[in-house]
Design a binder for these strands. Structure first.
Lengths: 224, 224
DNA sequence: GTCTATATTTAGATAGAC
DNA sequence: GTCTATCTAAATATAGAC
């Protein structure tokens, strides 16, 4: 680690504030509806100052995703450090982390169809490095969980990997959240559950408890 | 049914062509990157003529979704007419229909976060009627499948319903399709499979066949 | 490096002739 | 109803003073 001058520290702090603002706005509005003006306003700086840090709107989005990936890598490292956890549960925990981040409004929503955005992200070495690092880690856990019989054998590891990444932008989570009927915790549980055991659940399990949803609905919004 | 004059028929045919073009362009580019100019060019008419049929870009998108819902209702009616099918398989078939439509480039991609688009769609009576009709039909099948023990009891019917609708925009399908490694049919199978039995699969089942992926990869693109 | 003010571009929407 | 040509608004990006 290089020691930073005061000016560099100030610069870095501002840049972090920018990334945080972009992160929140991307989660709220998505890439296309987020304007650079709104980012500048949220940070409290002029728009021209923004362009001294990032040379395009696409670069802003890329930096936000790189930041999120940093968080994912940190969480993955914690999971890897605990030898008592099964690999399938490491995958589950990371999926849960992604869904929680989404439901708390901190997961950028990027349109996969935007070519200029894709190009900017593939050119971002920081983003790409972290993405590959995370993919590698997940890939190892997937292989291991497959060998242990904890994952469906007929699914290629790639399919499982992408399915896990996709949980970060599950539209069902947004819809349920917008309804306001259930607690965030309950929605996260369902999202992770449907990801790993599907809508049909585990046929091996016996009948669910009679009142499975007791205490899962928000107070004051119970349906008649 | 009212009898149409020739002029009305011509008008209707052109309108159908517009909806088809919008449908394809929405699937390819998504709402934000689809321009009205591109729609006019694809149909082969002037942009001003478009606005004689639809008064806004949002209305175009809404008409495209209403058209897709019409197709879903037709498929649902066919399933309902065959008494030999289990309700859980009706749900599966409809999910498969949606994924197939997506993978063949005929499923509009609409951003859920766009407020003006949401407003236009909720104001579109045709779209809303079909949406409710389909939701009702699916809701009945879900209740019935739940009673038969074919769906996980701990999941509220709403959650299952939205999860099925969400299969129409599953990003995993797009990613796998873009990779070019697998056949469309194989990708559809996996998408439906992960939806209903998840990444872990059914623990009750015995070991999968040794070479589960035989014949599922596209020719000439087999990995080393 | 930060700001105000401005340039440029793009795309949604419309006027008016036919 | 359809077309060409145009208007307008919004948003990305930049110039130039401090």
């Amino acid at each position: 680690m290089k020691k930073l001058t005061l000016a560099e520290k100030v610069y870095q702090v501002r840049e972090d504030a920018i990334v945080a603002a972009v992160n929140r706005l991307l989660a709220e509005k998505g890439f296309d509806l987020m304007t650079v003006d709104a980012v500048a306003a949220e940070v409290g700086i002029g728009k021209a100052s923004l362009y001294k840090h990032f040379s395009s709107k696409e670069d802003l989005a890329s930096a936000a995703m790189a930041f999120v990936l940093q968080g994912a890598l940190t969480h993955a490292a914690e999971l890897a450090a605990d030898p008592s956890i099964e690999d399938i549960d490491r995958l589950r925990s990371l999926a849960r982390w992604a869904v929680q981040r989404q439901i708390s409004g901190e997961m950028p929503a990027l349109p996969a169809q935007n070519p200029s955005l894709r190009e900017a992200m593939t050119r971002d070495k920081v983003y790409m490095d972290r993405l590959m690092q995370l993919s590698d880690q997940l890939g190892q856990w997937i292989e291991s969980a497959l060998a242990a019989g904890a994952l469906e054998r007929s699914l290629p590891p790639e399919v499982t990997l992408y399915s896990l990444f996709a949980k970060g932008c599950d539209p069902v989570v947004s819809i349920l959240k917008a309804m306001g009927t259930y607690t965030d915790e309950q929605i996260v549980d369902w999202a992770v559950q449907t990801c790993f055991t599907g809508l049909c659940g585990s046929p091996a399990r016996d009948a669910a408890p009679p009142q499975a949803d007791a205490g899962t609905r928000k107070a004051g919004k119970r349906s008649p």
